[in-house]
Design a protein around this nucleic acid. Structure first.
Lengths: 350, 350
DNA sequence: CTATTCTAATAACACGTGTTAGTAACGCGT
DNA sequence: ACGCGTTACTAACACGTGTTATTAGAATAG
C-alpha cells in the first residue's frame, strides 16, 4: 500500500526553525507557562497548518497512557443485536457525549461469556480507557475480572450486588406501572411475555414487577400465563401462541418489550383476535416506531438517549479520576397511553 | 485513578530469564525462523501466562504502523441515526468480519459535511487503518480529501463517478421491480415517497427506478405524486398526508424505505383508508420487523448483513495492500410479497 | 591449534509524542 | 568584573513494542 509519509512534529519544528519540544508546547497550549514568545508561537502554528500536521494517535496514547477511546460492549449474541432497536439511540447519544470530551467510541461484542480473554486485549491492552456495558448478565464471569482491577466501568442496566457504577431505570416499578394500568382497566386475567430470559437482570425485574402488581391487587398468579421472549419478534409470536393455548385465554397481556410485542400482536392478528377488544396489550421501551404501528402501542417510555448520555458522562468522569459518591443513577419512566390497551375505548363507552 | 501497573514484555523477559527480544519473537511466533530453542520458548510462554501479559495496543500500533481498527463512519445527522434500523445489522456483520481478522470497529458520525477537520484526526492521526462509509452524500466535500490520499476506503452505497471501492445494490433496478409489481396488479395511479432527500444517492436512484417503471409501461408521470421522506416514520406520515391531498388519490404508493413506510401507513390508517384495498403499499429494505406488523409489508429485501460483510471483507483486503480489480460489488435483491400490496387479495378474488 | 560455520540469544535502534531538567544569552545591581 | 535572576528555548529521557545487526559460545573442519 502506497501511503504518503506521515507528517511528524519534527517536520513542523524544522519548518518553523525551532525544536520539537517548542512545537509540542505551543500546539498543546502550554506556551504561556513555558514563556514562549508569541512570535515563535505564531510561526509554529503557521508551519503546522501549512504542512497539515495531525498528531499520531498511537504515539499520543502511548505517552499519555490514555487512548481517548471508550468501549461500548454489547453482551448479546449476534442475532439479538440485529433486532436491537435501542442500540441506535444508545450509540447516538454516546457518541455525542464522547465527542464533547474529545473521545471516540469503539464497539465490541462479547460473544463467549466464559472467555476472559476477550476482555483482556481490550482492557489490559489499554485500547480503551473505560467500558460501557450494555445489558449485563448475571452469569457473566468476565465482569469479576473487571471489578478486581477497578477499571473504569459503567453498566447500563443494573446488576444487583455488583460493585460497579450503573445507570438504569427501575424495571420493577415500571413493569408494575404497566400491569397496574391493565388492572385499572378492569382486567382480571393478565398474561406476561418477558423481553428475554431471566439471566438478564432487566428481564427478571420486569417479571417481578408484573407479579407484584397482581399480588397487590389480590389477583391470582397463574404461571401458565408467563412466557419468555428472546429479544426479537419471532419469540414474541411463539410466546403469544403459547398463551392462546391456555384456557381461558387472558384478556390482557403485559409484554416487557416493544419489539417482542410486535411479534405477539402479529400472533393475535393471525389468530383472528382484535387488539384491544379481545386482548389488550401494554408494553415497555416505547421505541419510536411504536407510535406508528396499528394499533398504536401503549408502552412505558424509557429515556434511552438520556440513559446513554448519563452513562457516558459518568464513565468519562470515572476515566478522569473522579469518584462520584452516588453509585447508581435511576432515571424516571412514564406510561404513554395509546391504542393497544383500550383506554380510549373505555372512555368513549363511558 | 489507581491503576495497577501494566505488565510489560520486559517483566516477562525478566521472569523467564531472557531478553525482551526473545519474548517478542516467541510471542509472535517468529521463533522458528530465529532458532530459539523449544525449551526457552516454553519458558517464555509460561512466564507470560503467569503474569497475565497483554501487549500494549498503542505501542504495537505505533511500531507496526497499524492500529488494527477499522472505522465505520455514518454520514447522517443524529436524529436520523436514532431511527436507523439497518445500522444494527451492519454493525453486527461488520464486527463479525473484523473479529475474524483480529480487528476492531470504531464508530463515528460525520456531523458537519463541510468540515474536513473531522476526518483528519481520524485518518491522518492513524487512529484507523481504513474507513467504511455508510450512506455517502453527493455533497460531501470531505470525501475528496480521502480520495487524494488514497486511504483505504469502502463505500456502502455507490457514489457515481467516485474513485472509491463500493458495495451496493442496484437501487434503480430494485425500485423498478417494486413499482412494476404494483403496475402488474393493475394500478395506474401510483405515488412515490422516497427514503430521503435526493442528495443521498440511494434516494435519487430509487426515485429514478420508480419513474423508469412508469415510463416503460407508458403511464403518465405526475410530479405531485412524488414526496420526499427523511429516514424516519414522521416524515413518511407527512408525505402520505401530502399525497392524500392530491385528487384523485393514488391507488398505490411505492415507499422507498420500510421505516418511512410505517409512518405512511399510519397516516393512511388515520385517514380511514384501508391497506391494501384503498391504497396498496410496496416498500424497500425488508427490515425484520416488517414481517410482523399488520398488514405485513411487501418489500424489496436488501441483503444488509451480506452487504456489510462484503464491505468489511473488501476493506480489510485494501488495508492489507491488495487491490481487487473489481471496484464495485453489486448484490442481488428480491421482492418479498406479503399483504400490503394486495397480491393475495387478487389471487383470492380471481 | 586455528579458521569456519552454526546456534542461541541480545544490544541497540526505530516508531512519534509529552515532559523534565538544563543551558545559553542577556540585563541588572553591586 | 562578578553574581544573579529572568527569558526563550532545547537536549534528553520515557512510553512499550517489533526488528536488524551483532556477539558470544560451541561444534566442526582443516
Amino acid at each position: 500500500m502506497i501511503q504518503r509519509k506521515q507528517v511528524t512534529s519534527q517536520d513542523v519544528a524544522l519548518r518553523a526553525g525551532v525544536s520539537r519540544t517548542t512545537v509540542s508546547l505551543v500546539l498543546n497550549n502550554k506556551h504561556e507557562l513555558s514563556q514562549i514568545s508569541p512570535k515563535t508561537a505564531q510561526r509554529v502554528i503557521r508551519a503546522a497548518q501549512e504542512l497539515g500536521y495531525v498528531p499520531n494517535a498511537a504515539a499520543q496514547a502511548l505517552v499519555n497512557k490514555k487512548a481517548s477511546v471508550i468501549g461500548l460492549v454489547l453482551s448479546r449474541s449476534h442475532h439479538q443485536i440485529s433486532s436491537d432497536v435501542y442500540l441506535t439511540q444508545v450509540v447516538d447519544a454516546l457518541m455525542l457525549e464522547a465527542h464533547q470530551n474529545q473521545m471516540r467510541v469503539l464497539l465490541d461484542v462479547l460473544e463467549n461469556h466464559e472467555d476472559r480473554n476477550s476482555y483482556q486485549r481490550l482492557i489490559q491492552g489499554r485500547l480503551v480507557d473505560g467500558i460501557l456495558f450494555s445489558g449485563p448478565r448475571t452469569d457473566d464471569r468476565a465482569l469479576d475480572l473487571l471489578a478486581k482491577m477497578d477499571f473504569p466501568t459503567v453498566l447500563m442496566g443494573g446488576l444487583p450486588g455488583s460493585p460497579f457504577y450503573s445507570v438504569d431505570i427501575d424495571n420493577i416499578q415500571a413493569a408494575k406501572l404497566a400491569t397496574q394500568h391493565l388492572i385499572s382497566l378492569g382486567h382480571q386475567r393478565i398474561g406476561c411475555i418477558t423481553n428475554a430470559t431471566p439471566v438478564f437482570t432487566a428481564a427478571a425485574d420486569r417479571l417481578r414487577g408484573y407479579r407484584l402488581a397482581l399480588q397487590e391487587n389480590h389477583l391470582p398468579i397463574d404461571d401458565r400465563l408467563v412466557r419468555f421472549g428472546d429479544f426479537d419478534p419471532p419469540s414474541g409470536y411463539r410466546a403469544m401462541q403459547g398463551l392462546l393455548s391456555v384456557q381461558p385465554n387472558p384478556t390482557a397481556v403485559f409484554v416487557a418489550s416493544d419489539v417482542v410485542a410486535y411479534g405477539a400482536m402479529s400472533a393475535l392478528h393471525d389468530a383472528g383476535k382484535n387488539i384491544p377488544e379481545d386482548v389488550a396489550i401494554v408494553s415497555m421501551d416505547d421505541v419510536p416506531l411504536s407510535a406508528f404501528i396499528s394499533p398504536r402501542l401503549t408502552s412505558v417510555h424509557l429515556p434511552n438517549s438520556k440513559l446513554a448520555q448519563s452513562a457516558g458522562s459518568l464513565l468519562i468522569d470515572l476515566i478522569n479520576g473522579n469518584r462520584p459518591a452516588r453509585k447508581q443513577i435511576i432515571l424516571d419512566t412514564h406510561l404513554v397511553i395509546r391504542e393497544s390497551c383500550g383506554s380510549q375505548l373505555r372512555m368513549n363507552s363511558q
